[in-house]
Amino acid sequence: MSSQLTIGKLAGATGTKVETIRYYEQIGLLPAPARSASNYRTYDAAHLRRLSFIRRARDLGFSIDQVRELMGLADRRDRSCMAVDVIANQHRDAITRKIADLTALASELDSLIDSCSRNTVADCRILEALAPAPLNAVG
């Protein structure tokens, strides 16, 4: 791979959309690249590594702020990794809470679906649960 990459090649190498790369530059996650004589962005291996890091962290569901924090910690390699552990544990805990919420939601929907008599819409328990007052009574 060439030492200089266009934005398109960087996007292809990382599986990131060009618009997303520009956004990461705009918010300071990715440093501004050098410009060629014809004013095209030119990226180097450091950009590729950094964008790969950002992409992987985002794929794992870390927020932009968490990615920013993690990158700041990664840039100071002599520090304890306890701060990284704290961020990762907080993120995992949030995921665990979301899973519990989604599981409860699925259970509630299962109950509604099981209560459906599959007759007419007028007798539909699902619609009744969504709008306890008859929809045609609103007015």
Rank of each mutant, 00 (worst) to 15 (best):
L5V: 06
N136I: 11
R92I: 13
K98M: 12
M71E: 07
S107W: 05
F53L: 13
A11C: 12
R56I: 07
L30W: 01
P134R: 14
Y24S: 02
C116T: 07
V67E: 01
L70V: 09
R125Q: 15
I27F: 01
S2P: 14
N136M: 10
D85A: 14
A34Y: 02
I126C: 06
P132K: 11
I95S: 05
D110W: 02
T103Q: 15
Y43W: 10
N119G: 15
A88T: 14
A137V: 08
R97M: 10
L10G: 04
T16F: 02
P132C: 07
D44M: 08
A13R: 05
I54E: 04
V84I: 15
A129T: 03
K9H: 12
G12N: 14
G28L: 08
L48F: 00
T16Q: 03
G61V: 01
V67L: 03
D78P: 06
R77W: 06
G28N: 07
Q4R: 12
M1W: 02
N89C: 12
L73I: 09
Y40Q: 14
M71V: 10
A100C: 09
L30V: 05
A104E: 14
L109Y: 06
L70P: 04
L30R: 05
Y23S: 03
C124L: 07
T14G: 01
L127R: 09
R77C: 08
R79G: 11
R125K: 14
L10Q: 02
L51W: 00
A74E: 08
L112H: 05
H47C: 06
S117W: 04
T16H: 05
D59Y: 02
H91N: 01
R22V: 04
D93P: 01
Y23M: 06
L127E: 05
E19H: 13
R58N: 00
E69Y: 03
L109A: 12
A133Q: 15
L29A: 04
V67D: 01
A32E: 15
R41Y: 10
K98G: 09
S52R: 08
R68F: 00
N39S: 11
N136C: 09
L10N: 09
M82Q: 15
G72E: 04
L70M: 14
L130F: 14
Y23N: 07
L127M: 14
N39D: 14
S2N: 12
P132M: 08
T16N: 04
L60V: 06
L112E: 03
A37V: 10
P31L: 06
S3N: 12
C124W: 03
R68Q: 10
A57N: 00
S107M: 09
R41H: 09
P31C: 04
S38N: 13
R49D: 10
A83V: 03
I21T: 05
D114T: 14
C116A: 04
R56A: 09
C124G: 10
L29E: 03
L10A: 07
A13I: 02
K17E: 13
E128Q: 15
A45Q: 13
G139C: 06
S63E: 00
N119P: 02
I126S: 07
R68K: 13
C116W: 09
N89P: 02
L10W: 01
I54K: 00
L60R: 11
Y24W: 05
R35E: 09
P132G: 05
Q66G: 11
A100F: 00
